[in-house]
Amino acid sequence: MSLFYMAAALFLLGTILLGLVRVLRGPGSGDRMLAAQLFGTTGVTILLLLSLALEESALVDVALVFALLAVVAAVAFVRQHGLPEPPDTPIHRQPPDTPGPERPHDDR
């Protein structure tokens, strides 16, 4: 059985590493934050699987703490960019294929 748990944990670790592409590529900061949040959920699952595979029941507590505090970074993220916008500010949404100068700089 623990072989199966370990394989599942390895698979989930692989999905985290794949999902890193989204953090690296963005393009918006919302995308990056979303990906980090997703890693939290996957990390909780990996910890639960490892707790059975390695027979270490304390890992359930670690998973509990991760689940409990997963939301903190997201709340901090929302508190960014709160300078009061002038009332006539247009919501500066632009189509993703416009190569505007404020496109996030990608240095790869």
Binding site: I16, L20, A36, F39, L59
Partner: peptide
Amino acid sequence: LFITFGLLLALAWV
């Protein structure tokens, strides 16, 4: 990326 780094580190400590 640093937040993700912390998550992976926790797995390494495990």
